[in-house]
């Protein structure tokens, strides 16, 4: 009995030793495996990235790309949680969240020497002296039901037209899109150009308070807005993005994104290298490739977003965009808490 036990113990020790040596050898084995680049980005881009971007990048650089698709805010929280041992090498996030990531040193400044394609993008796509880059500019405007409104949306003032009582949707103060409707409202109230009017918040709230009788919904998510417009329950959805609206139009849904005469908004989509990023060379290579003509065409053709590389031929939906105003997200970040309180008391009632 004792002998049997002893044998078992011996074999157990042998197995443990074998297991331990395997564990010690694991890093070496991992090096033989292909390098992995982990990217955090918007969930809505998952399909396009996995079909049109990652396969060719993996072939070109002999690596494997893993994508964690969620909201910019969620990815920021993940970065904050593992600040000293980051998982992501590259993050794709909206500018308002990038500002926080920069303030908390979660991203590192782009080194132009390592990004060969940086010269191909327009100058104002290099944000905050190169802390991150805008790889595309989704367009935000007014989504509408094209069956009920064959003439489109020639002006932001349509949202206030009593003809559309109970048929208008505006973003919540908690949604990313809130500055667009505030800037458009301030422009209509003051007559100043939108880029200038965005700072006149009192005028914005004064005008926005008069939209209440037209409201069907103050929305938080774009999917619900698109659905309500397509079914005809709503007619106008302010602040909707090109990527959410135009792919539905191409699929045959009665929805389109308007070109108001006052202009539309650009919502810069940023790409940044994570501070202390694993696989830093691959991270630089990926950032550079997103600015090159091949992937810039993907953003325009598949997502209907305006590329920041002007060499790309634009599809008609993107080419027709009127003036694109870029919101001052730093100003938004400074004032959003105060706006939330005002919005809840003056608009969402």
């Amino acid at each position: 009995m004792t002998q049997a036990t002893s044998k078992t113990r011996r074999s157990f020790l042998a197995q443990t030793a074998a297991g331990a040596s395997l564990a010690l050898a694991a890093p070496a084995l991992a090096q033989v495996r292909r390098k992995e680049l982990i990217i955090g980005g918007p969930a809505g881009m998952t399909d396009v990235l996995k079909e049109d971007v990652f396969p060719s990048f993996e072939r070109k650089y002999g690596c494997r790309v893993l994508f964690d698709g969620s909201s910019s805010l969620e990815n920021l929280k993940k970065m904050q949680a593992v600040k000293d041992r980051p998982q992501f090498s590259v993050v794709l996030m909206d500018d308002p969240v990038m500002i926080v990531a920069q303030d908390e040193k979660l991203i590192e400044k782009i080194d132009p020497k390592n990004i060969p394609n940086i010269g191909a993008i327009v100058q104002n796509a290099i944000v905050r002296d190169g802390w991150w880059l805008s790889y595309k500019w989704p367009r935000a405007s007014i989504a509408y039901n094209s069956k009920n409104l064959p003439g489109g949306t020639p002006s932001w003032a349509m949202l206030w037209d009593p003809k559309y009582k109970g048929k208008v949707m505006i973003p919540s103060v908690r949604a990313t899109q809130i500055p667009f409707i505030l800037a458009a409202a301030a422009h209509l109230e003051t007559g100043k150009p939108i880029a200038e009017a965005q700072y006149d918040i009192n005028a914005a709230f004064k005008k926005l308070a008069t939209i209440r009788s037209n409201l069907l919904l103050i929305y938080n998510g774009s999917a619900q807005v698109a659905n309500l417009i397509e079914t005809g329950e709503a007619t106008l959805g302010a602040g909707m993005f090109s990527s959410y609206t135009l792919w539905r139009k191409r699929a045959g849904a009665p929805v389109d994104l308007g070109y108001p005469q006052e202009g539309s908004f650009a919502m810069p989509s940023g790409i940044a290298k994570v501070a202390k990023a694993p696989e830093p060379e691959l991270a630089d290579a990926f950032i550079s490739e997103t600015l090159g003509a091949e992937y810039q065409k993907v953003w325009a053709d598949k997502l209907y977003d305006t590329p920041t590389n002007p060499s790309v031929t634009l599809p008609p939906e993107v080419a027709a965009a009127s003036t694109l105003t870029v919101i001052d997200w730093g100003f938004v970040a400074q004032n959003r808490n105060e706006w939330m309180s005002r919005f809840d008391r003056e608009i969402a009632i």
Binding site: R174, I218, M340, I349
Partner: peptide, 17 residues
Amino acid sequence: GERHKVLSKVIAHNFLV
């Protein structure tokens, strides 16, 4: 949606946003 505020929604807003 947001046009009818009840305690649960305002509590969530204060914790999460």
